[in-house]
């Protein structure tokens, strides 16, 4: 087994965060009072709205900016965002669906081996930081992809990145490094 053998790594996307704008001012109180699936946080000035199918939670600001979290794929995020925009339209706002953007993707990936964290950190110095006093995982940053990986000794890796593609590339990039400092099978 060598580093670039085609081991199928399942990258499980657990969260996709996206934002979009409605280009209109949203009366939060109206949303709060007429929607069934909302929580109005008056002191913060936002409304949380939840949807089923896709199961997402949206934060609605009165400026018309909406942040959707909880989707498990980019398509789903967009679908959810459009549904949300539609429900706002139904509430009587002149919603225009613009500036849709996926801002963050969180994914989990399991390596089929254990990783020697101290060794791994030593080999990948400037990018990796391992502080067991603060966090059990090694934090590895890939600047070019704007991705951050949390590498655990058990072999599970949590990746955050700006989009699904970056996350996948990040895992591909990290694989040879973690493979290098895996625990030898005796």
């Amino acid at each position: 087994m060598d580093a670039d053998s085609d081991v199928a790594l399942d990258i499980l996307i657990t969260n996709v965060v996206c934002v979009f704008r409605t280009r209109c001012h949203l009366n939060l109180r109206k949303i709060a009072l007429e929607g069934a699936n909302v929580i109005y946080k008056r002191d913060v000035g936002k409304v949380l709205m939840k949807l089923r199918k896709p199961r997402i939670t949206a934060t609605i600001w009165s400026s018309g900016k909406i942040i959707c979290t909880g989707a498990t794929s980019e398509e789903e995020a967009k679908f959810g965002a459009r549904r949300l925009a539609r429900s706002l339209q139904k509430l009587g706002f002149q919603v225009i669906f613009t500036d849709f953007k996926v801002v963050n993707v969180l994914a989990v990936c399991n390596m089929p081996f254990e990783i020697r964290l101290p060794e791994f950190t030593k080999n990948n110095r400037p990018h990796a930081s391992y502080e067991p006093e603060l966090h059990p995982a090694v934090c590895y940053r890939i600047k070019s992809l704007r991705a951050t990986l949390q590498i655990f000794s058990t072999g599970s890796i949590t990746v955050t990145g700006p989009n699904v593609k970056a996350v996948a590339t990040a895992v591909e990039q990290i694989y040879p490094f973690v493979f290098e400092s895996r625990k030898e099978i005796l």
Partner: peptide
């Protein structure tokens, strides 16, 4: 961007 696409909703 612009008009909301309603397909699938």
């Amino acid at each position: 961007d612009g008009e909301l696409d309603l397909s699938g909703i």
